[in-house]
Simulated assay, not measured.
Amino acid sequence: MDKKEATTLKWLLAINATMFFVELSVGWFAQSTALMADSLDMFADAAVYGLALYAVGHSARMKLRVAHLSGWIQVVLALGALSEVFRRFVFGSEPVSTLMMSFGLVALIANTICLILISRNKEGGAHMKASWIFSANDVIANLGVILAGFLVALTNSPYPDLVIGLIIGLIVLNGACRILRLES
């Protein structure tokens, strides 16, 4: 079981680390808070999967501690994403909707693969439950990025991007709180 968990977590780590760099670069270029928030979520996920990988083979107590540490990482990154939404609201931005939609779709495919991979192990301990929560939230966030891109194109306004970026930040924060409440 430990080997299966480790293999799954290595794949999740690789996918999320790659997508973090891709979405961060494109989000910055596209001036999209939704893509930036999602890239930070990808970074948090990569860190979480790395920590969960460390917990494989350790005691249930260690797995819970790793899950809680992962939750705190998510809190910090959610607050970072929310501050970026605020910054762009104050200073303005002109998000590029086509980039938002296309890279939101790429991220959705990547996170759907992650969700399928982790679904086989989601009951393996607190570290795997935390990983499941992250992956499920990511799919929701990616759908939000695509929707934001569509609404930006439709309205020719940056506000849908800001609203979706805010919602993604709050989803990440909610996921972090759920993980911090895990007891086993």
Score class of each variant (00 low, 15 high):
residue 16 N to K: 08
residue 33 T to Y: 08
residue 9 L to P: 00
residue 124 G to N: 13
residue 77 L to G: 02
residue 111 N to Y: 02
residue 113 I to H: 11
residue 3 K to N: 12
residue 75 V to H: 03
residue 88 R to N: 14
residue 47 A to C: 12
residue 35 L to C: 09
residue 163 V to T: 12
residue 63 K to G: 15
residue 136 A to P: 00
residue 69 L to Q: 01
residue 81 A to Y: 14
residue 155 T to M: 11
residue 7 T to L: 14
residue 1 M to T: 03
residue 10 K to I: 14
residue 148 A to P: 05
residue 7 T to V: 09
residue 31 Q to T: 08
residue 8 T to C: 15
residue 112 T to R: 06
residue 6 A to E: 15
residue 80 G to C: 06
residue 164 I to Q: 07
residue 38 D to K: 06
residue 13 L to R: 13
residue 73 I to Y: 05
residue 118 I to L: 05
residue 16 N to W: 08
residue 150 F to H: 13
residue 11 W to E: 13
residue 94 E to I: 00
residue 155 T to P: 02
residue 6 A to S: 14
residue 17 A to I: 05
residue 56 V to I: 04
residue 98 T to L: 14
residue 15 I to C: 05
residue 16 N to R: 08
residue 12 L to N: 04
residue 103 F to L: 06
residue 30 A to H: 07
residue 144 G to Y: 01
residue 59 S to F: 04
residue 173 L to Q: 05
residue 88 R to E: 10
residue 135 S to T: 11
residue 30 A to S: 13
residue 52 A to L: 02
residue 87 R to C: 09
residue 26 V to R: 01
residue 165 G to M: 06
residue 172 V to P: 00
residue 108 L to C: 06
residue 5 E to P: 00
residue 9 L to N: 02
residue 25 S to G: 15
residue 162 L to E: 11
residue 29 F to R: 08
residue 115 L to M: 14
residue 121 N to K: 12
residue 4 K to Y: 10
residue 149 G to P: 03
residue 129 K to F: 03
residue 35 L to I: 07
residue 40 L to N: 04
residue 141 A to Y: 05
residue 126 A to M: 08
residue 28 W to Y: 14
residue 113 I to E: 12
residue 161 D to G: 04
